[in-house]
Amino acid sequence: MKFEIIMINKFTRMLALSLIAVMTLYCPHVVAKTPVLEIEIKDHLFFPATIEIPANTKVKLLIINRDSTSEEFESYDLNREKVIAGNRKAVIFVGPLSVGEYEFFGEFYPKTAQGKIVVIANE
């Protein structure tokens, strides 16, 4: 019964190829014009706790964890989630966003590690 094996193989090969295609297509357009914003985590707090970014712009958040414990950056509003190990850096791309407030928090210390991104209209 070779038939379905061939079918599945063809299927998976197509899937893998299309994935690679998609990844390579979108890989190069990184950095360049993307503004970088730094956020520090210290004593389970975000510094700064409020970040202002312009509307409709993609930004790169560089999160530096100064604590020895790990933290998980999480935001329901931004749909972002990422573990940041102790004394390490992490990059999260955010946006482009429309005007408004977007809350984020540290999932491991949600009572203290809280912050928000305020998106302001461009002049």
């Binding site: 990184v30 790990s70 573990v83 190990a85 102790g86 390490r88 850096k89 990059v91």
Partner: peptide, 15 residues
């Protein structure tokens, strides 16, 4: 190895 994996691909290894 999460900390090291995170550093891959210009800090987006985890994703």
């Amino acid at each position: 190895n999460m900390a090291d994996i995170s550093d891959w691909f210009d800090y987006v290894g985890q994703e």
